[in-house]
Each structure stands twice: as structure tokens, then as C-alpha cells.
Write a protein that binds this DNA or RNA. Structure first.
Length: 528
RNA sequence: GUCCUCAUAGCUCAGCUGGAUAGAGCACUUGAUUCCUAAUCAAGAGGUCACGCGUUCGAAUCGCGUUGAGGACACCA
């Protein structure tokens, strides 16, 4: 819709301009303050310029009226245009909001270490990533979703050791001396029990089995993580194992050598990341030959870029922000355009219950399980609330709030609007087929505004995706639902003379709510 | 100490590519149901957009500084 308007206005004005939505719909559907910026150039008052420009639109088909108010040029779309668009959307619901984007994107998110279940902090990145994936695909982007599995390095060893020691303590019942660092969540005890059943208690008798336990444990944890994700309807297209990429190290290393950005000092291999603004150079290979975490990411990003996407998006926890510059430096040294990589940081989530703060710590094992929260408040509410605040801001929420089934719970409010639409159709005894060809004309202001709001979804989706700010979608759905509730309270539908028109209007609102919710991973309810 | 993110109503937050009177929900006050689900709606009250300076015809929005909150500053992942 916006595209058509921009096109039409550009045809007449023959220059670039800003098209905005007025705060108050009584001003019109779209507006441009272009007369203000032309005032200086033309040495005329903005009001005079706006008046003159308006005349250009007198014969427009898509505008009902174009008027100047205090220097603004306000556009009001014609009923014919809105009606046509609505008819199409109702008949082609699955196409509504689609766009013509063609860029390919590799979207990596979650990538939590397979050393334990997902906690509530992971959920934020997971939900954001999955929703971007859904919306981006809808807009036409060729998006691949990917999970990077950190199945190499010291954490894997620590997982094996933790299961081993827990097995000795809880299964073999022998005295165990715990190291300072180990995974101490209860799930480790469960893992040890499971290992006992599957592998037999013998496995805890010899330290040589620690490695076997770490691989076994990692597989178990990946299964658990996948099921945690499935709880909120998230499924990845592919998983990439860190370990499986290590045989490519020589190739990546050679590229770095060629770019002369690698050096050896104190027996360690360093990457010269300070050349590209990093605070210090970073070690990639330790003195004993073990690669650091960064080495894994060097290979991984080499691998990603070899796959030739137009754009790469990584969603990381905010605590990784210092890591961005060194990875980007590495990408540059490998001979790729590091600007193609975009890192979205998901800020920390602080969970409250009855006003009491929870502290999260994966190491300590007293973190809040994502699965518990999902069980508590449901996938829909969790998804909605996580998306309704910008990802780069801290989020505080009280679990108790989700349990309320009234308007303080936005997902409830939106579903209620959708259910009402369904209910009105039922009462009227009419179907979509009966009303989809009814002309929407001579609508009262409330109806016309509601129709316009419902047709805004496509541009909201595009704006939200491009800016990576999905709270624009949740905000929109709340506002649209509020408009529907307001209309419902002020206008009777069934049995009135405008019944069929209003039914078509409601059908259009229903389409936008359903499509909007679906793209953030929520299925609209037909009945409450 | 350096860097990142943030600061808007009592609370939780929108708004930020500069533009019309700064919005919503919760909580508070009042009202609406012979009528499609009142799980809703309407009205009222509530603001130094942290503070200062600057850019501009115009700043919550952009720049600089100050204050405050959280986070990151590994040869851990």
C-alpha cells in the first residue's frame, strides 16, 4: 500500500520526499512535510507551496483527497483503492504481506553450548531469531536458520567430568572431590542416572571414560535443547558442529597467513585484530597447540562465507559484544567483506516472581529453565512479551503477570478480538464467500479507519524486519485489536443495514491478526 | 580506567530516518450490558521525555558533555 502511494506521489512531485503516517488519522492516511524543506529553496512559505503541490493530485485515482494543512500535505486514500486491496487480501490470505525481496541471508541464533538445558536468557534470542526467520521468509528473503554447536573445547571436557563425578558420587556412592569449576545443575545428576542405565555403572569407574561421557552427554543435551525449542515451536534448518570444522583449520590458517595478519609470539599464534579496531591482538592457537574459541569462529565464518550468502546475521547474547570486533577482523583477514555480517545483541532478561529477582547462572546451576517458564505461562505469551520490547534493552518481567487472563495480558486481548470476529460471523450465518465481493463504500469514519489500519500490516512487517525491531509487529497487533474492540462496542453488525460491509471489514481485520500472529509464531484463537 | 546498551506518566513500556496537541497497558476515579462474548468499551486524572549546552524554521528524536543503572573488557566458551 505504502509502495503504491510513494509511487503515485513521486510521479507527481518528481523528487525525493519523506512519507509519514500522521499521528491522528483525521489528518489523512499519509502525509509529507516536504513543503517545509522546500520553503528555503523556493523562498515561499510552506503553506503556499503545499497548496500548490496539492493541485497536482486533483485527478488521482488512488487518492480520495489531497489537502494542505499548516504546511503539511495530507493524503487520503480512495475507498475504491482500499476496497480492492482488501478484497484481494481476503481471497489471498497466505499471500498478504508478502514482498519481493530476493537477498539470501544466513541467520544464526541460539547456538547455546550443549552442556545443559536452555535457560530463559536463551529464549529471548531464540524467539527473536525464529520470528525474524518467519517474517523474513514471508517477505521473500532466502533465509537459512542455523545453530552452531560448540561441541569442542574445555566446556565439553567439563561436561564429561561433571557427569563422571556425579556418577561416582550418586551411583557408585564414593567420596568425590569436586573441582572449582563444574556443572552443578540437577540435570547432571539426571544425566549420570541415565548414563548408568544406558552405559552401566562401570563407566564411572575409570577416568578414561570421561571423554566418552562428554560426547554421550553432548548428544543428550542437544536432544534436550531441541525439545526445549520445539516447546515454543522453533525448528532449525541445520546444525553445524564446531568439531567437524576443525579439519578445515589449515585452509583458513593459510588465508590468514596470506593476508599477513597472523604472527607467532611466546609460542602462541596471534591474530592482528588491532589493525581493525580491536582493543588487543588475540590468541588463536595456544602454546600447547590447542585452538582457542576464536579459532573455531574463524573457521566457522570462513565456512559461512564460502557458502556465498548476501548477508549474515548472528544473534548473540549481549555479553558477547566485545567479541564482535575480533570476529569481524578475522572475516576481513580471510578476504571477505565483514560488513555483510550483522550482529544483533539480545540483552539480558531479568525474571521476577512476586517481585523477587532471580539470578541466572549457567555454571552454578540455579538458572531459570526456559522449559519451566514455557510450562508456566505458555509459548504464546512468552513469545509475545519477549518480542514486545526491543532486543537491545534490558527486559524485566514478572512471571505472575502472564498468568492473568485479562487485558493486562496482551496476547489475551488480541485473541479476544480475533475470537469476536469469528463469533460475529457465526451469529450472522454468513461466510467469507458471501461477503468478499461486497463493495466497501460510504463507510463511516470508524469503519474507514479500521479498514486502513488492517491494511497496514505489510508495511509494518517490512519496517519491522528491516530495522530488526519486532516490537513494531506486537505494537501493531495490539493497536489493531484495540480498534476492533472499539468498533465492536460502538457499532452493531448483525442484522444492521451495513452488516455485509462490516463483515467484510471484520474479515480483513481477522486476516491481519492471523497473519501477523502467525509470523511471530502464534496461532490466533477462534474461540475463547 | 576503556567500550557497549539504556534513562519517557506511580509501575511496565511504545514513539526516535528531526515535523502537527508526547502515547498505550496496569493501577486509581466515574460511567456503559432488554443488544453480535462487559475477558470489552468510554470519560477523568497522571509528564522538567534524567540534566546542561549545541545544530535547526522546528529536538523526546541528531551531536557534545554531565549524572545514574546494567553489561563487556581471557590464552572461558
Amino acid at each position: 500500500m505504502k509502495k503504491r502511494v510513494i509511487q503515485a506521489v513521486r510521479d507527481e512531485l518528481q523528487r525525493e520526499f519523506i512519507l509519514e503516517k500522521p499521528k491522528d488519522l483525521s489528518f489523512g492516511h499519509y502525509a509529507t512535510p516536504i513543503a517545509f524543506s522546500l520553503a528555503k529553496e523556493l523562498r515561499k512559505s510552506p503553506m503556499v507551496i503545499a497548496d500548490e503541490l496539492c493541485k497536482k493530485f486533483e485527478n488521482s485515482v488512488i487518492f480520495k483527497e489531497v489537502i494542505s494543512v499548516k504546511g503539511y500535505i495530507n493524503f487520503r486514500l480512495s475507498e475504491e483503492f482500499l476496497d480492492e486491496y482488501a478484497s484481494w487480501a481476503i481471497s489471498n490470505e497466505s499471500e498478504f504481506g508478502k514482498s519481493d525481496k530476493t537477498e539470501s541471508i544466513l541467520l544464526e541464533y541460539v547456538s547455546a553450548n550443549p552442556t545443559g538445558p536452555l535457560h530463559i536468557g536463551h529464549a529471548r534470542g531464540a524467539i527473536l531469531g525464529d520470528s525474524l526467520y518467519r517474517i523474513g521468509n514471508h517477505l521473500g528473503y532466502k533465509i537459512t536458520s542455523e545453530y552452531y554447536v560448540n561441541d569442542a573445547g574445555s566446556q565439553m571436557a567439563m561436561l564429561g567430568l561433571s557427569i563422571f563425578l556425579s556418577g561416582r558420587e550418586n551411583v557408585l556412592k564414593v567420596e568425590v572431590e569436586w573441582p572449582q569449576e563444574y556443572y552443578r545443575g540437577e540435570y547432571i545428576v539426571d544425566l549420570a542416572d541415565e548414563a548408568n542405565e544406558e552405559l552401566g555403572a562401570v563407566v564411572f569407574e575409570d577416568e578414561k571414560n570421561i571423554e566418552q561421557l562428554s560426547v554421550w552427554g553432548k548428544d543428550k543435551m542437544m536432544e534436550l535443547i531441541k525439545s526445549n525449542l520445539a516447546d515454543v515451536d522453533i525448528e532449525f534448518e541445520q546444525f553445524v558442529s564446531e568439531k567437524s570444522l576443525y579439519n578445515k583449520w589449515n585452509d583458513s590458517f593459510k588465508k590468514l597467513e596470506e593476508s599477513d595478519k597472523i604472527f607467532i609470539e611466546d609460542g602462541k599464534t596471534w591474530i592482528r585484530s588491532t589493525d581493525l579496531g580491536d582493543e588487543k591482538d588475540r590468541v588463536v592457537i595456544r602454546e600447547d597447540g590447542r585452538p582457542t574459541y576464536l579459532a573455531g569462529d574463524v573457521i566457522y565464518h570462513d565456512n559461512k562465507y564460502q557458502r556465498g550468502y548476501d548477508h549474515y546475521i548472528n544473534i548473540w547474547g549481549a555479553d558477547h559484544h566485545g567479541y564482535i570486533s575480533r570476529v569481524k577482523a578475522a572475516i576481513n583477514f580471510l578476504g571477505y567483506d565483514e560488513k555483510k555480517l550483522e550482529v544483533i545483541l539480545a540483552q539480558m532478561v531479568a525474571l521476577l516472581k512476586g517481585g523477587e529477582p532471580y539470578k541466572m547462572s549457567k555454571r552454578a546451576g540455579n538458572f531459570i529453565l526456559m522449559s519451566d517458564v514455557v510450562k508456566d505461562v505458555g509459548s504464546d505469551a512468552l513469545r509475545f512479551v519477549f518480542l514486545s520490547k526491543k532486543s537491545d534493552t534490558h527486559l524485566d518481567f514478572d512471571v505472575d503477570m502472564f498468568k492473568q487472563e485479562d487485558s493486562s495480558n496482551p496476547i489475551f486481548y488480541i485473541n479476544y478480538a480475533h475470537a469476536r470476529i469469528n463469533q460475529v460471523f457465526k451469529k450472522s450465518g454468513k461466510t467469507l464467500e458471501d461477503i468478499k465481493d461486497i463493495k466497501l463504500e460510504n463507510l463511516n469514519d470508524d469503519a474507514a479507519n479500521l479498514l486502513y489500519s488492517a491494511l497496514l500490516l505489510p508495511e509494518i512487517l517490512e519496517d519491522a524486519f528491516e530495522s530488526r525491531q519486532l516490537q513494531k509487529v506486537t505494537e501493531y497487533l495490539k493497536t489493531l485489536s484495540a480498534s476492533l474492540h472499539k468498533f465492536y462496542n460502538e457499532n452493531r453488525v448483525v442484522g444492521e443495514k451495513d452488516e455485509e460491509k462490516f463483515l467484510k471489514l471484520f474479515a480483513m481485520v481477522g486476516v491481519s491478526i492471523r497473519v501477523g500472529l502467525k509470523l511471530i509464531g502464534i496461532e490466533a484463537k477462534n474461540k475463547m
